[in-house]
Design a protein around this nucleic acid. Structure first.
Lengths: 113, 113
DNA sequence: TTTATATATTCGCATAAACGCATATTTCGT
DNA sequence: ACGAAATATGCGTTTATGCGAATATATAAA
């Protein structure tokens, strides 16, 4: 039997996941990690943001299990835990792209008449 | 040429999208609308929440273009604008499911030894 | 053990979000 | 024009978030 609260809990978990995605810097981090694992310093330089900011965003991603860590000596490497995260982001990007294309076509219609 | 700020803007748009998904009630709304278009009252009853709350969540989804409206007399019907939104949510749900399964297996290992 | 490097955390503040409640707006029927 | 039903919005309060600056922690090398 599927109770109302059960559905609510599932959605809460899913929302936590989405929350981790709901920040431009974290999205850039995920796409970067999709290319290859990177250290905190790598990401800090690549994104051009302060190191504490990078660590904070990584903590949010780590707490929710979107990224995993491994230590090599003094530096810590982060990697993506599941490529489906990028697939999901790409799907959303596709929706965005189609929407913008659609708007551009509308603008053309207006300008040509 | 792809500038840093350009990437930042894309990610900002994508994050706005994800923000709309980062709430359990809104996720339930989207899944409900994926079955069929519904009025505000439909959703209010189905979710068991106050009507103003439903309207406010719908506004957030509407402002970002995840849902679209059409009026029939005094009632307003909402529908999903793109099924890829559900595909993206399902992908995330799959990641969650595998993670939970993995944890359950680990727990079994622990209990059996 | 001291020092340097890499990473994480704390604090304070400004801003933004969620929610309940009341109320406004829109549309239709009479 | 008026009342009823459906939907949207304003307001005040509580709670959460993001960020900068400073600081703490951990590891390795000397």
């Amino acid at each position: 039997m599927i109770t109302q609260t059960f559905l609510q809990e599932i959605s809460q978990l899913e929302a936590d996941f989405c929350f981790a995605l709901a920040d431009p810097t974290r999205i850039l981090i995920l796409y970067s990690l999709n290319e290859a694992p990177r250290t905190v310093t790598d990401l800090t330089i690549e994104l051009g943001i302060p190191q504490p900011t990078t660590s904070r965003h990584l903590k949010i991603l780590r707490d929710r299990g979107l990224v995993a860590v491994s230590r090599q000596g003094v530096s810590i490497t982060y990697r993506l835990t599941d490529t489906r995260l990028i697939e999901a982001l790409d799907l959303l990007r596709g929706v965005m792209r189609d929407r913008i294309t659609h708007r551009a076509l509308l603008m053309n219609e207006i300008n040509n008449h």
